[in-house]
């Protein structure tokens, strides 16, 4: 059984004859049980929208969405509302409930699921232990650092032991070192609990650290790139190359040339290369390395 199965999902804003821009345009995505898929893509490519569709926060205009074995959206079918799907989400800015303590935030989903009080306490303690913030249990969430807040957000999801956790750029506001540590921890926790996940980010390092497999959202479609270990840089498109922070080659246009240096315009930024290469206006391939 697949944890997530999206088939030919379309989503556009506007109704009737006045169809707006399509955000999702025939997206397909399969996530196996226990598998972590990293989802990359440029801003506005539709990554977050895809997550919202899986979570049930937005309804697709067409297509089939199956989450944890339940068909949640299908043409002409009444969608299953978000709270009844076996999937939770970690938001970019954590979205902790400011009027609740850390422990109460973690307990939130358990309360909704009507878990008895004693069991709830136990589970909250257990999960806080897992994410290594037991000492923060009674803190106000307004007093947390960014990293701590995301740990609480993750704990809040893990507490429910869901089939799927969706991550919407959870670490983008954190500094690089912390990001790396947390990314490792997240992967470990997901593997430890056997939870499936879709992990949206624009940081290739992060994606390759957390995920088993990488896919790219482009023009509202999902392009499979394959397992992290087997990633073939030559198969990447230009936009992905840029996103992945410099593995592989991209083509660019030479904008100025001198004896000492050459300026090349890549998609929307310039790089200055040492030495003289080609002439202004030429298209060149640039090998990018970290």
């Amino acid at each position: 059984m697949k944890a997530i199965n999206l088939t030919n999902v379309h989503l556009h804003y506007g109704t009737g004859h006045n169809l707006g821009d399509a955000v999702l345009n025939g997206a397909d995505l399969q996530v196996a049980e226990g598998e972590i898929v990293g989802l990359l893509g440029a801003s506005g490519a539709g990554k977050s929208t895809l997550l919202r569709v899986i979570a049930g926060l937005q309804q697709p205009s067409a297509g089939t969405v199956i989450v944890a074995g339940i068909t949640t959206d299908d043409d002409g079918m009444r969608p299953v509302p978000p709270h009844l799907r076996d999937c939770t989400m970690v938001f970019q800015d954590a979205q902790l409930f400011p009027h609740r303590t850390v422990a109460a935030n973690v307990a939130y989903g358990l309360e909704a699921a009507k878990v008895p009080r004693a069991q709830r306490r136990q589970r909250v303690a257990q999960v806080l232990e897992m994410v290594q913030i037991s000492e923060l249990a009674n803190r106000a969430v307004t007093a947390l650092s960014g990293g701590q807040a995301q740990r609480v957000a993750l704990a809040r999801c893990l507490a429910l032991n869901p089939a799927v956790i969706l991550f919407d750029e959870p670490l983008s506001a954190l500094d690089r070192g912390l990001r790396q540590t947390l990314a490792v921890d997240i992967r470990e926790l997901l593997k430890q609990t056997g939870t499936s996940a879709v992990y949206v980010t624009h940081d290739a390092d992060e994606a390759t650290t957390v995920a088993d497999r990488i896919a790219v959202v482009e023009d509202g479609k999902i392009v499979e790139l394959g397992p992290v270990g087997e990633l073939d840089s030559s198969a990447l498109t230009e936009s992905v190359t840029r996103l992945l922070g410099g593995i592989g080659e991209v083509s660019g246009r030479v904008t100025s040339v001198s004896e000492q240096s050459t300026t090349v315009e890549l998609i929307d930024q310039h790089v200055v290369l040492p030495g003289r290469h080609g002439a202004v206006g030429d298209t060149v391939m640039v090998q990018l390395r970290r």
Binding site: A55, P82, H83, T88, Y108, A112, L160
Partner: peptide
Amino acid sequence: DPKQRQAAAVLGASPTR
């Protein structure tokens, strides 16, 4: 923030909750 409501929803809270 409407996202607060969404966060609650994905954690299993019904609209009334």
